[in-house]
Design a protein around this nucleic acid. Structure first.
Length: 262
DNA sequence: ATGGTGGCCTTGCCA
């Protein structure tokens, strides 16, 4: 089973590239973030014509997450399942696809360490861990993917540790919050396959950062131990980030993993 | 040098 995560930075702007990518890579499950679409604007029919069922949890101008599947899509759940206050943003959706419990999530950016949004980010991550404890089953194949807005360690940031102490995405508190999520029983599948590689998934549009290889690996595929052991590969399609404004790339590249599941 | 670019419900905000 091929599972992909891709922050498309507006599905409206990216739909042709996403459809091309589906044809080329034929994933079984495609998880999207930052659709930036209202619920009724999601291109359900276009994806159905390409052979994919889909679920979208959107709000309009910002955020928005989706799961596309050609191996079944059941038990959909948007947001957190803890019965607490609804998340003000559309940042996570769950579905079961081909026997795997899958989440597509868009973790808050954090903006800066002294910003309220940073506190929201840490609280959001803690809530995801609590939600796993309450509602997920460690015995079920579980794959949580998305834009985590965290570079797990210094290999995942072009300029760490220089920016270690005073920047979001690399702060110890964010990395600890991610580690706490993984402690539930999840592994960073890319790192399971590439111990030393400094390969990124996001590059700022500005200042030619993509061409300067100045990026971060913040788009992650987290899988339970058995699924990680059953993974054959985990790759970043860096080609999808290429091109100038005329080619309309997202600022993120798709990250995908292949699993050989029983 | 606190810049640069891209997306949106665009003339400000978010990433």
């Amino acid at each position: 089973m091929r599972i992909v995560t891709w922050n498309v930075n507006s599905l409206n702007a990216r739909l042709p590239r996403v459809l091309d990518w589906l044809n080329l890579f034929e994933p079984d499950v495609l998880c999207l973030q930052e659709t930036k679409l209202a619920q009724d604007a999601f291109p359900t029919d276009e994806f159905a014509a390409a052979g994919y069922e889909s679920v979208h949890h959107g709000e309009g101008r910002w955020n928005g997450v989706a799961i596309l599947s050609r191996v079944g899509l059941t038990d959909v759940r948007p947001g957190f399942g803890d019965g607490g206050e609804p998340d003000p943003d559309a940042r996570i959706v769950w579905a079961t696809c081909g026997g795997v419990r899958i989440a597509s999530c868009y973790v808050p950016n954090g903006r800066s360490l002294d910003d309220d949004h940073y506190a929201y980010k840490l609280a959001w991550l803690a809530r995801l861990r609590a939600d796993l404890d309450a509602n997920a089953d460690p015995a079920t194949p579980t794959v949580i993917v998305g834009d985590f807005n965290i570079a797990p360690d210094d290999r995942d940031h072009y300029d760490a540790p220089a920016e270690f102490e005073n920047a979001t995405h690399v702060s110890a508190a964010e990395r600890d919050a991610l580690a706490t999520i993984c402690d539930w029983g999840l592994t960073d599948v890319f790192r399971a396959h590439h111990d030393g590689a400094e390969l990124y998934s996001w590059w700022d549009y500005r200042a030619g950062n993509f061409h300067k290889r100045k990026g971060m690996r913040i788009d992650l595929i987290l899988a339970d131990a058995a699924s990680t052991a059953a993974s054959e590969l985990c790759l970043v399609d860096r080609n999808a980030r290429k091109g100038g404004k005329a080619e309309t790339p997202s600022d993120h590249a798709p990250v995908f993993a292949d699993f050989v599941l029983a």
